[in-house]
């Protein structure tokens, strides 16, 4: 994992050097108050006067203490985590505020995706090549090819504007501060409903196709025939015996899908105006806010590595053969 982290940091570092000019000109261009003095300070902070290799080394050193610097925008907020100034005022970090929002929406969405996709995958596998399978699988395959943001846009319009069932943007209503605690909960729920439900509908296509294929590989194996021969009910055979094995590769798939989910949050959050990592990144990219861009790239990649690690551990936990070292 350590070499991976170094590789990732190298790429995020190199990106900073892709842009024409040095980064202080970019800061000056959207923050006219920047004086020559503060630009000098910034050059010093990023060690722009030193050779690139030294710059990278120093950047890595700061990164290892989780110091991602402060935003280029006028408010100069810390990129990663809160800091205390001399008077004891706490300024919250940008990633610190955005990350929980994105994590919550993605994890809730992923749960919902699994709850919907696994039964669909199992059903189509048990009805393999019958008309029910053909119908459902065709629909799923079309959904799989649809651009997620298009479906999101249309559903958002239909559910939010035409039917007026749910608010379509942000996390709170305008009068949020005046609400009673219970109203706040329902208000939050209403605002989160579309951003969680719609992406999980578009995401379930891939997962259910995957589950179906996994089930098809398992359903015709000998131990399933044995289970049937023992006289177990079809439900137990399918959901207890077959599904457990078919779900194993799904763990790996979920681990691999994390970068996609994080990356996809840019589009999802821009549609629903959610103040999460994707929105933060998008705004930072438009403003060429380098510390924020590099911070999010690094944190996003670290999350992916963490996700893969969790997936590996979960795999070992779920598969006794791996746990006991029977298969590598």
């Amino acid at each position: 994992m350590i070499p991976l982290l170094i590789g990732i940091s190298l790429i995020s570092f190199l990106i900073m050097h892709l842009a024409p000019g040095d980064i202080t000109t970019t800061e000056a261009s959207f923050n006219p108050k920047t004086s020559e003095e503060s630009r000098q300070k910034l050059r010093q902070m990023y060690n722009l006067d030193k050779p690139v290799i030294v710059q990278y080394g120093l950047w890595l050193k700061r990164m290892s203490t989780l110091d991602f610097g402060t935003s280029f925008a006028a408010d100069q907020r810390p990129v990663f985590w809160e800091t205390k100034d001399k008077k004891g005022n706490i300024t919250k970090g940008m990633i610190q505020e955005a990350l929980p929002v994105t994590l919550f929406i993605n994890i809730a969405g992923l749960m919902l995706t699994l709850i919907l996709a696994i039964p669909i995958g199992v059903y189509t596998a048990t009805k393999h090549n019958q008309w029910q399978d053909r119908l459902v699988t065709s629909a799923i395959f079309i959904l799989y090819s649809a651009p997620g943001f298009w479906i999101s846009l249309l559903l958002m319009y239909w559910l939010g504007v035409v039917c007026n069932l749910f608010p379509i943007s942000g996390l709170h209503s305008l009068n949020y501060d005046l609400m009673s605690p219970w109203e706040k909960v329902t208000d939050n729920f209403k605002h989160l409903f579309l951003p969680i439900v719609i992406p999980s509908i578009t995401g379930l296509a891939g997962v259910s196709l995957f589950v179906k294929n996994g089930m098809l590989d398992v359903l015709y194996q000998d131990y399933i025939t044995t289970a049937r021969a023992k006289g177990l009910s079809e439900f137990i055979v399918v959901y207890r015996h077959a599904l457990r094995n078919a779900l194993l590769p799904l763990i790996t798939l979920l681990g691999l899908s994390i970068p996609g989910l994080i990356g996809g949050s840019v589009i999802a959050e821009s549609i629903f105006a959610i103040p999460g990592m994707g929105k933060l990144f998008y705004d930072a990219v438009l403003m060429r806010n380098f510390p924020v861009i590099m911070g999010i790239l690094t944190v996003g990649s670290a999350l992916t590595l963490l996700g893969n690690l969790i997936a590996d551990i979960a795999y070992a936990w779920a598969d006794p053969r791996v746990r006991r070292g029977v298969v590598k």
């Binding site: 590789g7 995020s12 691999l256 970068p259």
Partner: peptide, 23 residues
């Protein structure tokens, strides 16, 4: 193979966005 692993763990869409915005 390590290069592949590195590229697979960076959220690609973020990377594309950043590069496109700069170039």
């Amino acid at each position: 193979m390590r290069m592949v692993d590195v590229m697979l763990s960076i959220p690609t869409f973020f990377l594309i966005l950043a590069v496109i915005a700069f170039l």
